[in-house]
């Protein structure tokens, strides 16, 4: 019998080894920094993000580190406040796609037959369109607003979760402990809830973490195209878009762009780390390198 004190703690116990890699550390640091900024922006930001009180298009300097835009707003403050718009929306978006896609995929995999056929053909239909274009069509049809942009991304994002969950559920469904449970008189729902779903969560969480970056890009992309956030709101995609109009003042587009870049990178690092931590094979490889 193994008496490994780390293994006893299950998932959390296996994390530290993988989290000691440099990419993992930078991922955590950047992600946490952005979360702090999102929460504390009203206190951290030096200016009101909407106030048009500063000299227009001032380059970065000691007074305003990221410069100002064409309406005389402080870009640093706007980028900070932008985190309050983009990050919670992205997280909610991913959580929703995970919930909807995961549930539909689990039902498809577990119940099979017509349930499977209906759900997966629907997913195929969505997959058949290029993601960005479909999201644009949906957003345009619903009208330009941030909520509608979120809905549009949701429409294109859930099938990925459905497909992955279905595959995982199909693999677990025939495992012997699931059959044992059914023989003990578990109903299909109880079997799904107790025996199947807890054993597929790991990989789906990895997918969700890796997807945060994609979702943020898509959301900012829609705003960039004018299908998302309305002008005064300090949304990063919209800010990059307005920066493009004044290309010579490079700082207007660059800083919100960098904000998007760092958030996407940080969550991708986190996702990779999570995957390594959950996959025993890669976890072992990391351990060997550490030795």
């Amino acid at each position: 019998m193994r008496r490994d004190p780390l293994a006893r703690k299950g998932l959390l116990g296996r994390l530290p080894q993988a989290w000691r890699q440099p990419l993992a550390v930078s991922g955590v640091v950047i992600a946490v920094a952005w979360l702090v900024i999102a929460v504390a922006a009203p206190w951290l930001a030096p200016h009101d993000p909407l106030a048009q009180e500063l000299p227009r298009l001032a380059p970065p300097g000691p007074d305003h580190w990221f410069g100002t835009d064409q309406l005389g707003r402080d870009i640093l403050s706007r980028v900070m406040h932008g985190a309050r718009v983009s990050i919670p929306l992205t997280l909610a978006l991913v959580a929703l796609s995970l919930l909807i896609g995961g549930l539909l995929g689990a039902c498809a995999g577990y119940f099979g037959r017509w349930v499977d056929e209906t759900i997966m053909r629907l997913a195929d239909l969505v997959f058949a369109f290029p993601t960005v274009i479909l999201a644009m069509v949906v957003a345009a049809a619903l009208g330009a607003s941030l909520t509608n942009a979120v809905l549009a991304v949701l429409v294109v994002a859930w099938p990925a979760y459905a497909r992955v969950t279905r595959g995982l559920v199909l693999g677990v469904r025939e495992r012997e402990f699931v059959l044992s449970g059914r023989l003990l008189g578990f109903s299909a729902w109880r079997s799904l809830r107790v025996d199947v779903l807890p054993n597929v969560t790991g990989p789906i969480l990895v997918l969700a973490t890796l997807d945060i970056g994609t979702a943020l890009l898509l959301l900012s992309g829609l705003s960039f195209l004018g299908l998302g956030a309305k002008p005064p709101s300090p949304e990063w995609g919209a800010m990059v878009s307005s920066g493009v109009e004044v290309f010579d003042s490079w700082w207007v587009a660059t800083f919100p762009g960098l904000a998007i870049l760092t958030v996407v990178l940080a969550f991708n690092f986190l996702g990779d780390t999570l995957r390594d931590a959950l996959d025993p094979r890669t976890a072992r490889a990391i351990k060997e390198r550490a030795l």
């Binding site: 012997e176 059959l179 023989l183 003990l184 008189g185 109903s187 299909a188």
Partner: peptide, 13 residues
């Protein structure tokens, strides 16, 4: 998909 009522038979895999 229905709940199994015949629990008088059990299996070890």
């Amino acid at each position: 998909l229905r709940r199994r009522t015949m629990t008088g038979v059990q299996m070890v895999f």
